[in-house]
Design a protein around this nucleic acid. Structure first.
Lengths: 200, 200
DNA sequence: GTGGCAAGCAAGTAGTTACTTGCACACAGA
DNA sequence: TCTGTGTGCAAGTAACTACTTGCTTGCCAC
């Protein structure tokens, strides 16, 4: 059914732009290019529409896995982090709105939170494997290291467009900076990182 | 004028809870314990009320400075980061709502963005001083290191209450973890950090 | 052609929104 | 005692909200 799909897509788009209260049925119908009445013929209520819309949105998001056995930590982390960053940046408007809404409507955001937790667990597992393989060492907490890298990526993706003066480097370099800093922090820099000039 | 102040406080409180669209004049008046008409006797419009409310909120936020000449990096960073974390966590609801609103009403959030930029510049200056004093070394970008630490603190403050499984350590330990990881990352760990057992 | 189905359109309902008006009351200073 | 001044209260406005109803139109299968 084509109209139904258009409505679902329009709902997430308008939600990302105006938030839940600002995403009126009129605006959604207009964005989908259908009559407002048609919206209510496909979905019993605005709430049901959003339930369905966020579900299909969450289902569509694919996951990129980190290898079970780390071989080239820097390369593997760079690729994985770039994927995460792209996702976060692409959906930054929706994520900001969802974060604001989650206190009032936790059910709507549960899927997003779960995805975020899964991603963090993936990285934690990888970092643990790094340490066990002797590719990282030192006195640090795996969860904290995970949250440090993910936090940097998240904050960058959320703040780059609104505070450009805080991010004088471009997105591609950003990931490299954060990954290298983390690898340094967890004592995993020696073998993997190529020299970049000013190495002290 | 007591009523005016109560209205300003109620406005920020209700905004933090319900967002701009959800912060109706009725709710604000009720939270301030006055009649809705009284609200419009003190402020021409809902918009003017919020302009004033966010301004007084921003004016009230004090800044804690980092020393110009770093002496005890770990201690100084810990204290400063704890202050930043407390502020972010205390106002997390308001910050989440403001982040969601900033695309539609950038003027309302400009003060918050400026504060965030100032804080980042403070930390950048301090880290630069660290390097110049020979207390940190390596091939890394000062801005990236700044954003890494601030990003970790920000993401923690925003996500801890809604994703507790991602943060198995408490808030106090969190700052210590992040600061130590950053100090490791920028090659500033040698003299300052006391042993914590498992040091490799 | 005829039936059925999906959609559009105009109109309406009931509730909420920001904001206004008019009047009554209570208190404080002259 | 009079007179502002600040407030509460009841009511009303116009616009918007989610959602409904009734009727019409186009299209596709038979």
């Amino acid at each position: 059914m084509d109209v139904r799909e258009a409505l679902l897509e329009a709902a997430t788009k308008v939600f990302a732009e105006f938030g839940l209260r600002g995403a009126t049925t009129r605006r959604i119908a207009q964005a989908a290019g259908v009559n407002e009445v048609t919206l209510f013929r496909h979905f019993k209520s605005k709430d049901e529409l959003f339930q369905a819309a966020l579900e299909t949105f969450a289902r569509r998001s694919q996951t990129r896995a980190l290898p079970d056995v780390p071989l080239h930590p820097r390369q593997e982390l760079l690729e994985w982090c770039r994927t995460q960053y792209r996702d976060l940046y692409k959906h930054r408007s929706l994520i900001r709105k969802a974060m604001a809404e989650q206190e009032e409507h936790p059910a709507h955001c549960a899927l997003g939170m779960e995805a975020s937790v899964r991603i963090a667990e993936q990285l934690s597992t990888y970092i643990t494997a790094l340490r066990q393989a002797g590719l990282a060492s030192g006195d640090w907490d795996v969860r904290a290291a995970t949250n440090m890298l993910l936090g940097a990526i998240f904050a960058d993706a959320m703040g780059r467009d609104t505070m450009p003066e805080r991010y004088p480097y471009n997105m591609r370099d950003a990931i490299e900076h954060y990954v290298d800093l983390l690898l340094n922090a967890i004592g995993a820099m020696a073998p993997a990182k190529p020299a970049r000039g000013r190495t002290a």
